[in-house]
């Protein structure tokens, strides 16, 4: 019901048309801070009502004004509940926004299927950079002392992951998704993070072989797409969900403690639990709603990953301790 600005700048939505179930969007306007990447990522935005008179002390623009500046197409006045139910029963589908039905049909016939496009290559950073107290820094900038060197393989990062890891005491070094295992190790990382990102993980053979080259040599942590990449790296399989997990209210149960956490999620693919048999990986967390895999661990390789977003933005902060726990784990050398 909140979080449209974060959603619109989340690279995991690259190439997608996003619709929100909450009907009143843009109420608190657009501000200069709550950006999750350098640009608007979805290609289209569908809402019931876009607020033309927002009210919030940080607001500097209206939703419509900002989307116009960013060159992203939006449509309002749509019965978004009806649309949501169509997606629920028919699954995610290709879509187009316009006012000429014939033209839209034509466009859709010509369009490549979503799964055929390499969105990760498009949203990943082209050049390496570091992250510091005030945001992006050049790779030449000196590293502060006593910080865990964390190499991040960028498949579609959200800034808040870097902000949280910085706060937890690490020095994030962000590399493009095309990086090799040798190149990663040349940065002498204390740990490696596999970032979230858009699209089908099966397309990402290059990243998977990089992960395979790193497994066992350095502690690895994965978030969202990173969870699926880790699964593929040990020989497991992923599959496409009918309509994915979106939004800020997904209950995840940790099988080790029984404790349930409300999480922020955004993924259309999931790890196949059965495929992990005999790979050395074990399922650690499950979605309480549909029983899908929410976390895996490979104890022998000091690798683990989660399917949800501990960085939130948007969404609940309940799994924020993960960042501290991860850094502490690296520090302890376990």
């Amino acid at each position: 019901m909140t979080g449209y600005q974060e959603i619109l700048t989340d690279p995991s939505y690259a190439g997608q048309i996003v619709t929100l179930t909450y009907p009143l969007v843009g109420n608190y306007g657009i501000n200069d801070d709550d950006l999750e990447s350098d640009r608007v990522q979805p290609t289209g935005f569908v809402v019931r009502e876009a607020c033309d008179a927002p009210s919030n002390w940080r607001s500097v623009n209206t939703l419509d004004g900002w989307m116009g500046e960013m060159g992203i197409t939006g449509i309002q006045g749509i019965d978004t509940r009806s649309l949501t139910k169509r997606i629920r029963s028919g699954g995610v589908t290709m879509g187009a926004i316009g006012d000429d039905l014939d033209e839209l049909h034509h466009v859709l016939e010509q369009a490549k299927a979503y799964d055929e496009t390499d969105f990760v290559g498009k949203v990943s950073t082209k050049a390496p950079y570091k992250w510091g107290a005030t945001g992006k820094e050049s790779v030449e900038s000196p590293d502060p002392e006593n910080r865990v060197r964390l190499v991040v393989i960028d498949c579609g990062l959200k800034f808040n992951i870097l902000r949280r890891f910085w706060r937890a005491g690490s020095r994030p070094i962000v590399l493009p998704c095309t990086v090799t295992a040798e190149e990663v190790l040349a940065w002498r990382p204390d740990g490696v993070l596999l970032s979230p990102g858009p699209g089908d993980p099966r397309r990402l053979e290059g990243v998977v072989s990089t992960v395979q080259g790193l497994l066992g040599k350095v502690p690895i942590f994965g978030i969202c797409l990173g969870n699926q990449l880790l699964c593929h790296a040990v020989g497991g399989e992923t599959y496409k969900l009918k309509f994915g997990h979106r939004g800020s209210n997904h209950p995840v149960q940790d099988l080790r403690t029984g404790k349930v956490t409300i999480t922020s999620q955004n993924h259309g693919y999931a790890v196949d639990a059965a495929s992990l048999k005999g790979t050395g990986a074990e399922v650690t967390q499950l979605n309480l709603n549909d029983g899908t895999v929410e976390g895996i661990s490979i104890p022998d390789a000091r690798a683990s990953s989660i399917q949800y977003h501990p960085e939130a933005a948007p969404g609940p902060w309940d799994s924020r301790p993960y960042f501290d726990e991860f850094i502490a784990q690296i520090r302890s050398g376990k």
């Binding site: 909140t2 909450y22 608190y28 801070d33 709550d34 933005a313 948007p314 969404g315 609940p316 902060w317």
Partner: peptide, 14 residues
């Protein structure tokens, strides 16, 4: 739900 709180404010209070 609340109408004039951003996601950040919503979750600070939550």
């Amino acid at each position: 739900p609340s109408q004039t709180l951003s996601d950040l404010e919503y979750h600070i209070l939550r």
